[in-house]
């Protein structure tokens, strides 16, 4: 067992903190107090206060969860659809591969934000529609990576040997292909999580994400823009919180990419 890397510690701290924060805040932490409206950051209110005199640190902390949950749901759905599809295309080859890849190409041609705005424009704002639309964009991405990784493994000597020995195709995939593509897939899935976080934040910023009663970081930025000149902290802090989370996830994904890349493997792995 290796010691957890700095990237792991960072991602666990940041994600855990953001998920736990709304439950840990003392009741009334974000109570309104018109007398204390738009105070700049100080020792008593490290992130300052908002238009209604609410403590902004409490608001920023409470706004992390909705985006994380949407991004997690999106990533899970995209992985559940995209990875099996890609592995199937790569392992089956032939006509199956051709059909799957042609369908995925349609998915690539429509940028994620364009598809999501169109879907939400038809259904109206809805978390379920948002997750579905984003997952529909990221599933092809995971499928393409899964297909490429599977294809690379299918040519390996141990797969050819298993085939020659008459092993059934699904057993070859389960025993030989999947374990050796896991690294690539985990890395790519983590990256999809960071794309989904950014996409959700952008859609919230555009007014199509979570609703005002339940603001996410993107939404807080929208509210901060008219006050840019008088209260820049209203935009700086929620944006910085989002960037911190995405950087942590990206660093972790990069580290996985290095640790699981067979070309960089440092012992212990085949």
């Amino acid at each position: 067992m290796r010691r957890p890397s700095a990237a792991t510690v960072l991602v666990v701290l940041v994600l855990g903190g953001v998920l736990a924060a709304p439950s840990l805040l003392p009741p009334g932490a974000a109570a309104m107090d018109p007398a204390r409206a738009l105070l700049p950051p100080s020792a008593g209110a490290p992130f300052g206060t908002d238009v209604l005199g609410r403590d902004y640190l409490a608001r920023v902390l409470a706004a992390g969860r909705p985006g994380l949950l949407i991004a997690a749901g999106t990533t899970l759905l995209a992985a559940l659809v995209g990875i099996p599809l890609g592995v199937l295309a790569g392992a089956a080859g032939g006509r199956t591969d051709l059909v799957v890849m042609r369908v995925l190409e349609v998915g690539f041609a429509v940028p994620p934000l364009v598809l999501a705005i169109a879907v939400l424009g038809v259904t109206g704002p809805s978390a379920a529609a948002l997750v579905l639309a984003l997952a529909a964009s990221y599933a092809p991405l995971l499928a393409r990576v899964a297909r490429a990784a599977t294809l690379a493994r299918m040519g390996e000597l141990y797969v050819l040997a298993a085939r020659a020995a008459g092993e059934r195709p699904w057993r070859i995939v389960a025993l030989h292909v999947l374990p050796n593509t896991a690294g690539t897939l985990v890395t790519q899935t983590a990256l999809v999580f960071s794309y989904a976080l950014l996409a959700e934040a952008s859609l919230s910023f555009l007014g199509l994400g979570t609703q005002p009663a339940n603001p996410s970081w993107g939404r807080l930025l929208t509210e901060a823009i008219p006050l840019t000149t008088v209260a820049p902290w209203l935009g700086i802090f929620p944006g910085a919180a989002l960037v911190l989370v995405v950087v942590a996830v990206n660093l972790r994904a990069d580290a996985w990419g290095d640790a699981l890349d067979p070309r960089l493997a440092r012992g212990g792995r085949p």
Partner: peptide, 22 residues
Amino acid sequence: AVVALSLPPFYLGYLLILVFAV
């Protein structure tokens, strides 16, 4: 590059407005 890839466009835009416009 890692930081730039982690920047949502609306946040970078906000920071640029803050610096260059305000």
